[in-house]
Design a protein around this nucleic acid. Structure first.
Lengths: 205, 205
DNA sequence: TCTATAATACGATACGCATTGTTTTTAACA
DNA sequence: TGTTAAAAACAATGCGTATCGTATTATAGA
């Protein structure tokens, strides 16, 4: 039997002493920076590890040592940006919570960022590993809370009943990703402004 | 100045007499057949024109001559199947029409077929041409009618008002593609059975 | 305190490899 | 004569690994 991942992490965190040369924070940042910059000019499908290494002025091996795939690099590059941290404010009502979380998700998926996620989704279609990565590092924290709040609202009477919670979640979140995958326009101003309200309108009533 | 594409098509269609060796229907079918078979074993991302040519026993050039990309081949292979033809039955009510169209779309996107479309969506993320192809050959005929029927139902009182039609469409269709892109399970039995009803429940009041 | 040693990370380079898309050439057919 | 088709040659790319010399750290021992 293997240890749960959390336990392993704990052990590693506990080990204060670390022999050997420590990982270079400078390289790490250079790699993520280069990735971000390259991804403004090209889709993830055209990005290569080699190109990242060249632009970041690091060895290819350094990248391979720390990331299993270019999608993983892109994911970290995406996450390590101001504005994509998922801050969930505590709210009084489930309605408010859902609305806030949708707004937050929309912010994170707009413009350039959306294109990165779209690329990762694309990559995930022929690579289950990337699909897991997408769920673990992005979706889990951002979508599950919405599910919980929908459930809460249905139970406390804020939202109408008769709608399957899972399906309701898909109906709220689906359109966001549909937009993200729909090319140039993606999530435009109009959508960003109106969507959360419309979503709530569907849940209530 | 170049002619509009339609004009060119017309000219070619008008030319009843066609000099030279006619295109081989046998090769065409062999190519689409091989593509379908290969796509049951591998994702579109791993499919290569070479592999198709080899399996279909045709030259690579034959494929390149008639299709601009492997996604285009996959799209034709997908469309040329019994069961994906989009038959829109005339119905009395908008509700019924929406339900039928959703059911039809779900049928077309289940199982193996869904994986092909997922692959094409993936491919479309680094290639605008494929995105257009996806819209022109698949989405346009299947999604636009739903929009029209939602609109109709909102106007004739079958559906509640206050919901933006475009957003409503996204809410109905988004979950389908979300499922298709979500890996193994995709559109499962439970979803297929319940979804159309739930969707209508949202539109109605 | 100072020094040696082990451990780890780094950038650079090269390699073998697989693979693909594309072009050219030649043959087949109407 | 014109078009299609097959085969072969071509060009390019990127991947993943291995290796090399060097740099940076912690620990052990003097």
């Amino acid at each position: 039997m293997t240890l749960p991942e959390e336990k392993i992490d704990d052990l590693q965190e506990d080990r204060v002493f670390q022999a050997g040369r420590p990982r270079s924070e400078k390289s790490r940042k250079a790699i993520l920076d280069a990735t971000r910059k390259l991804l403004t000019h090209m889709p993830l499908s055209e990005l290569s590890i080699e190109a990242i290494a060249k632009k970041a002025k690091v060895g290819k091996t350094t990248i391979y040592r720390w990331w299993p795939s270019k999608a993983a690099v892109a994911m970290d590059a995406f996450l390590e940006q101001p504005g994509v941290q998922n801050i969930v404010a505590t709210t009084s009502s489930a309605s408010e919570a859902v609305q806030r979380q949708l707004e937050s998700l929309i912010r994170q998926l707009r413009g350039q960022n959306g294109r990165i996620i779209a690329g990762i989704i694309a990559e995930s279609q022929g690579n289950p590993t990337v699909l897991d990565l997408l769920y673990d590092k992005f979706l889990k924290d951002r979508v599950s809370p919405i599910y919980d709040k929908i459930d809460e609202g249905q139970k406390n009477g804020e939202f109408k009943t008769g709608l399957n919670t899972g399906i309701a979640l898909d109906m709220l979140v689906g359109p966001l990703f549909l937009r993200v995958l729909s090319g140039d326009h993606g999530i435009d101003n109009e959508f960003a402004e109106n969507y959360p309200t419309q979503a709530l309108f569907v849940l209530k009533n």
